[in-house]
Design a protein around this nucleic acid. Structure first.
Length: 424
RNA sequence: GGAGAGAUGGCCGAGCGGCUGAAGGCAACCGCCUGCUAAGCGGUUGUACUCCAAAAGGGUACCGAGGGUUCAAAUCCCUCUCUCUCCGCCA
């Protein structure tokens, strides 16, 4: 959520930010709602103040055993007006809140302006793209012939966009999770295993609701949502809390399954496990003081890159331009891994600084030593990494001419020392 | 699932219809005092919203949440949530 004060005091900057995001948002309309809302609040409070004074006088009269009937009648009459104003104020307040909750974060000054993903500049490239003497196969072919994946039965049991991992596929996935989580812990992150079902309030705090409701799986009976990322429970770890400055930053990592409805993506990435309704992810998350958040974003990116480096997977880092950034983010780097079988790079991690956008929704503050009052923290999240896509990338990059898959050295300790996955 | 107990400020804890944003204590901060430390003395210390160009200063709301009774609710009534204890069931 944006600071309402920023909207009021610097509407032009906000308008420009939304323009840069390609968002057609009527800021003036929201400002008008705000004016109306405050008008009702002022009127209401004036009335209430007058009423409170009268009530006090009644108290005094009663104590002195004097007649207070006249004043009591007056207050009774005031209560009717107050009730009416209260309804109006609440309505205006709800309107304002509704409007504010769907406004995206303001892009940081360092974010390049652009329309869509075509305007995302490449920041760096790393690793050797493997050269094959044969036409590299996509991971789903390898997965099926090696008995690592079963797509048909996944459809039977669930529906399309689900995958069953089998034998060494399942094992490799588990190995990747352990490897990623251990690496994150080794780099100073505290490990969490969060709930996969969260309240609507938690989804609102991290920014998934109300705007992206159609992307989330909901258990309607319980007002519980399947998390689309462990960013959601991790953000909410400190909801409604005030943290001591000295304790910051918090660096958290959490493994979770992630569930996404992928509404509106029909026809995109239909094969394989690039875009599925359920996937695993090891997430990095930080709570920081505002002045440190952009540095912490850089180091989080390095933490995510480290996984790819250790796996010896070629990748590139791009920065998302203003038009391509996510709702809550002020600055985002995407890591794209090379997928030889698909002959392209695929997003495998996204590291974002959400500044105080989520903290404001989630009411997460910190107190400076000796400072007065509390300020909102900054929150950052990044994948390290999306497990399914990493699995696919490993298979495609490490395939051999015989259709086997070599196990990356970094994963062998997690695969009982296995060096190669072969048929049978 | 059954039976009880509870939810008050950073913490402990009083209050059970008006003068209570909330006694008292602890903690923290600022002064004074003091060879140092400790003790002692005095003062300060919640959040959100809102009015004011801003500061100063007003105002409104907040004692788990929501509703109700009343001129007036932390205090009375109803509903809900959460926590704890015991029994049952269960990975």
């Amino acid at each position: 959520m944006l600071d309402a004060k920023l909207l009021r005091e610097n509407p032009e900057a906000v308008k420009e930010a939304f323009r840069n995001r390609n968002q057609n948002i009527d800021v003036d309309a929201i400002l008008a709602i705000d004016v109306e809302r405050r008008k009702y609040i002022t009127e209401l409070e004036l009335k209430k103040s007058a009423k409170n004074k009268l009530s006090e006088e009644i108290g005094k009269l009663k104590r002195d055993k004097k007649d207070a009937a006249e004043l009591m009648a007056k207050v009774t009459a005031m209560n009717v007006e107050i009730a009416a104003l209260e309804t109006q104020a609440a309505e205006a307040g709800a309107n304002f809140n509704e409007a504010m909750l769907v406004l995206p974060n303001i892009p940081d000054k360092s974010v390049p302006k652009g329309k869509d993903e075509k305007d995302n500049p490449e920041i760096k490239k790393s690793g050797e793209v493997p050269v094959f003497s044969f036409k590299p196969r996509p991971h789903w072919e390898l997965g099926e012939t090696l008995g690592m994946m079963d797509f048909e039965r996944a459809v039977k049991i669930s529906e399309s966009r689900f995958v069953i991992l089998k034998k060494y596929g399942a094992m490799l996935s588990r190995a990747l999770i352990n490897f990623m989580a251990n690496t994150a812990v080794g780099r100073g992150y505290t490990e969490f295993y969060p709930p996969f079902l969260v309240k609507g309030k938690s989804m609102t705090a991290s920014g998934q609701l109300p705007k992206f409701a159609e992307q989330a799986y909901k258990c309607a009976e319980d007002d519980l949502y399947l998390i689309p990322t462990s960013e959601v429970p991790l953000t909410n770890m400190h909801r409604d809390e005030t943290i001591d400055e000295a304790a910051l930053p918090f660096k958290y990592t959490g493994y979770s399954a992630c569930f996404r409805r992928e509404a509106g993506t029909y026809g995109k990435d239909m094969k394989g496990m690039i875009r599925v309704h359920q996937f695993d992810k090891v997430e990095l998350f930080k709570f920081t003081a505002p002045e440190n958040s952009f540095n912490e974003l850089e180091s989080m990116l390095l933490d995510a890159e480290e996984i790819l480096k250790l796996l010896k997977l070629p990748y590139r880092v791009i920065q998302l331009c203003t038009g391509d950034m996510g709702f809550a983010s002020a600055k985002t780097y995407d890591i794209e891994v090379c997928m030889p079988g698909l002959n392209c790079y695929k997003e495998i991690s996204s590291c974002s600084n959400c500044t105080d956008f989520q903290a404001r929704r989630a009411n997460i503050k910190f107190k400076r030593k000796g400072g007065k009052g509390a300020e909102f923290v900054h929150t950052l999240n990044g994948s390290a990494l999306a497990v399914g896509r990493t699995l696919a990338a490993v298979m495609e990059n490490y395939q051999t001419d015989t259709g086997d898959v070599v196990v990356p050295e970094a994963l062998r300790p997690y695969m009982n020392g296995m060096e190669k996955i072969t048929r049978g």
